[in-house]
């Protein structure tokens, strides 16, 4: 059953890719559309990786753009100035961001809840100011002339890898330890879970993928500007909104939210001003009526759906 499921998933994923390629070659999907699909994949990576920190481990971080920025700038520096192959640059960007995650994780973990949130936000801004003052990556002028290496296929593949790795992680003993830390740190410690270790681990893994997403992004846009909306707290909050709307602790929720909230603004380009009014209202309403997000801690899958229907049927028979 399990093997069959993964076979179906693989086929479906491959099919999506082939359909996109086919539509592109037929000219039905314009390059602009494919660009947006790549952006969807990049956002999926960002949102799922932040969900590991915020949703699964319960460590409220609003500095994800800092890790993203490290990956974006470091990889761009590597491909532009050192002519490193792109895949290697992605990995290096991820590793550097992951190391930054370790560096933030270690001290930040002494903080809880909203204090941690503010500290991570502060960290993100510090990264931005450092980039702003580093001439090697363009400083305040921004980093231009980055080669366009990011293709839809590469973004798509990286997104799949991210989702699979994080899903596997959270369903392993390591992920369960993270869940335990989120649910009740004292109880988790009493069961032998070293809560500090798992917080740092979640930060490092989340940061690694955010860095990889950054690398894909800088080689997608070909230009990085050290502005709050591109690598600062506005970006962090954008990612956070997607995580929250998709549901803390739901990977499928994150994927839906990332795709939906990437495509919708493109469709509503004329209403850009209203978008920034609707988003926050949506956020507040969701918090009031469904504080854990739309798909909180639940995963959407065919077998869950089948179970749900069977359950409903059985229930119907009973009554």
């Amino acid at each position: 059953m399990k093997r069959l499921n993964s076979l179906i998933s693989c086929t479906a994923l491959l099919l999506v890719y082939l359909v996109v390629k086919l539509l592109e070659s037929r000219g039905i999907l314009l390059p602009y559309h494919v660009q947006i699909l790549s952006l969807c994949c990049i956002n999926i990576i960002l949102v799922v990786s932040l969900n590991l920190i915020n949703g699964f481990t319960g460590q409220f971080s609003i500095g994800h753009a800092g890790f993203f920025a490290i990956g974006a700038y470091a990889s761009a520096y590597l491909t532009v100035h050192l002519q490193l192959p792109f895949v290697l640059a992605i990995i290096c960007g991820g590793i550097l961001a992951g190391l930054a995650g370790l560096a933030v994780g270690l001290p930040a973990l002494r903080l809880r809840g909203d204090y941690l949130a503010i500290a991570t936000l502060g960290f993100g801004e510090i990264i931005r100011v450092i980039i702003l003052n580093t001439d090697a990556v363009g400083g305040a002028r921004g980093f231009s002339g980055i080669p366009k290496y990011t293709t839809f296929g590469l973004a798509y593949l990286t997104a799949i890898i991210t989702v699979v790795v994080i899903r596997n992680f959270v369903t392993s003993d390591f992920g369960r330890a993270c869940l335990a830390v989120r649910e009740d740190e004292i109880a988790a410690e009493s069961l032998g879970v070293n809560s500090t270790y798992f917080k740092v681990l979640a930060f490092a893994i989340g940061a690694f993928f955010a860095g990889a997403a950054g690398a894909l992004f800088s080689h997608y846009l070909q230009y990085m500007a050290p502005t709050p909306s591109q690598i600062g707290f506005v970006k962090s909050i954008d990612i956070l909104i997607m995580v929250v709307l998709g549901g803390l602790g739901s990977i499928t929720g994150s994927i839906f939210a990332a795709v939906f909230l990437t495509i919708i603004p493109e469709l509503l380009r004329g209403f850009a001003e209203y978008r920034m009014i609707i988003y926050p209202i949506l956020l507040i309403v969701v918090m009031i009526y469904r504080p854990a997000g739309l798909l909180s801690g639940q995963e959407f899958s065919l077998s869950n759906l089948a179970k749900h229907f069977k359950g409903a049927k059985a229930h119907g028979n009973h009554s």
Binding site: D173, L179, S190, L191, G192
Partner: peptide, 22 residues
Amino acid sequence: RLFRNLSVLDNLRIAYHQNRKY
């Protein structure tokens, strides 16, 4: 102090943590 939002089995699995070898 159970992990209230997790299944009973997951509560127990978590506690196996220190014996995990993989």
